[in-house]
Simulated assay, not measured.
Amino acid sequence: MSLFKRAAVSEFASNASVVFSTLIIIWLSIVLVRLLGEAANGTIGADVVLGLTGLTTIAALPTVLAAAVFIGVLTTVSRSYRESEMVVWFTSGLSLLSWIRPALRIAVPAAIVVGLLTIFASPWSHRQIQEYRARFELRSAISQVTTGEFLELEHGARVILVEANENDPEKLGQVFVRIKDDPWHSVVVSDHAKTEVAPNGDRFLVLEEGMRYDLTPGGLVTRLWDFDEFAVRLDSKDAEQTLRQSREHALLNHKGRPTGLLLTDGKSHSDGQLMWRLAIPIATINLALLAIPMGAVNPRAGRSFDMLVAGLIALLYFNLINLSHSWINNQTLPFGVGVWLVHLVFLSLTVFLFWHRVRVRAPKNPSD
Rank of each mutant, 00 (worst) to 15 (best):
L50D: 01
Y81G: 09
F12N: 03
P299W: 09
L263C: 07
A121V: 07
G115V: 05
L261D: 09
A288C: 05
A103T: 01
H185A: 09
S29T: 12
T222Y: 12
V73T: 03
V175T: 15
E154L: 11
Q245C: 02
N322L: 13
D168R: 02
V189P: 07
I280D: 01
G54H: 00
D306Q: 15
G42W: 00
L323H: 00
K237Y: 13
P281Q: 11
P123D: 10
S246Y: 08
L316V: 04
S10N: 14
D306I: 12
I292Y: 00
A121P: 05
R105P: 07
I328R: 06
F318T: 09
W89D: 12
L220M: 14
D47C: 09
I321R: 10
R357H: 14
R257T: 03
S21W: 03
V48C: 05
A296F: 08
G37D: 03
T76W: 05
H269L: 11
E85M: 06
N330T: 15
G51I: 07
S122G: 03
G51P: 05
L323N: 05
K194A: 15
M211N: 15
V114H: 02
G51R: 13
T57F: 02
V187G: 05
L290P: 10
G37H: 08
V87I: 15
A66F: 06
I119G: 08
H249Q: 15
T146M: 06
N298T: 07
V49M: 05
P109V: 07
N322G: 14
N322H: 12
A66E: 01
S92V: 01
L341F: 10
S246K: 11
I313T: 12
I328Y: 08
L161W: 13
G201W: 00
S367W: 15
S14C: 10
G51K: 14
D306Y: 12
G272Q: 07
S246Q: 09
H185G: 09
R247T: 13
S326T: 12
R105A: 15
H185P: 04
A301H: 03
P109M: 04
F70Y: 13
E11Y: 05
S326K: 15
P199S: 04
V309Q: 10
R6G: 00
L207I: 02
A134T: 00
F120K: 04
H185V: 14
H192Y: 14
T242Q: 12
W184F: 15
L65K: 08
L94M: 11
T63I: 14
F176V: 07
P293K: 04
N322K: 13
G338K: 06
E149W: 09
I280L: 06
V337M: 12
L341R: 08
G201A: 09
L117F: 13
I100C: 02
Y213D: 00
L52E: 04
H254P: 13
S92Y: 05
D191H: 11
R359P: 05
I100W: 04
A198F: 12
G45Q: 09
N329P: 03
I112P: 01
N319W: 10
F335Q: 07
Q331F: 01
